[in-house]
Amino acid sequence: MELTSSSIVNGQIQKPHACRGKGGSDQAPQLTVRGLPPEAKFISIVSDDPDAMKPAGRVWVHWNVFDVPAQGELAVAAGQALAGDVGKTTGGGRGYEGMCPPDGVHTYRFAVFASREKLGVDTQVPWTIGDFEARYGGQVLARAQITGRF
Rank of each mutant, 00 (worst) to 15 (best):
N64T: 14
Q27W: 15
G91K: 05
T90C: 09
Q71P: 09
A114P: 14
A81S: 15
G21H: 15
V121M: 07
F150Y: 12
N10Y: 05
A142Y: 13
Q71V: 09
C19S: 13
A77K: 15
G72W: 01
I45W: 02
Q27K: 14
M1D: 04
G92P: 06
C100I: 14
G72T: 03
G138W: 08
D48H: 09
V65P: 00
D49Y: 05
E117M: 07
R149T: 10
R109Y: 10
S47T: 15
D49W: 03
S25Y: 11
E39N: 13
R34P: 09
V86P: 01
V9M: 06
N64V: 11
I146P: 00
P37G: 11
A142T: 11
I8E: 00
G91I: 05
P101V: 04
L141S: 05
P29L: 12
V46E: 01
S7W: 08
E117S: 07
V125L: 02
G11A: 03
V46C: 00
L119I: 09
A114V: 08
D49L: 04
P69N: 03
P101M: 08
Q80L: 04
F42D: 00
G98W: 01
S25Q: 15
R109T: 08
V68F: 06
P102Q: 04
G23S: 12
C19L: 06
I146Y: 02
G57K: 06
R34Q: 12
F113R: 12
G120N: 04
G72C: 03
V61K: 09
D131I: 00
D131N: 13
A18Y: 13
H17T: 07
Q12V: 10
Q71T: 12
Q14H: 05
A70K: 14
Q14L: 15
C100L: 06
D85L: 08
T32K: 13
A40N: 04
C100A: 14
E73H: 01
K54I: 01
G91M: 00
K54R: 11
A81V: 13
Y96F: 03
S47V: 15
W63V: 01
P101Y: 08
S47I: 14
H106T: 06
N10A: 06
E97M: 05
G98H: 02
D131P: 09
K118D: 04
R34E: 12
Y108W: 06
V140T: 12
D122R: 02
Y108V: 03
A142H: 13
E133V: 05
P55N: 06
A75P: 13
W127Y: 07
A52C: 07
L31C: 08
S7M: 14
E117G: 00
D122I: 04
A28D: 01
P126C: 02
A111D: 04
W127K: 05
D49F: 01
E97A: 10
G104C: 05
V86W: 15
P37R: 12
G93M: 05
C19I: 09
R116M: 13
H17A: 03
R94P: 01
I129F: 00
I43S: 03
R135V: 02
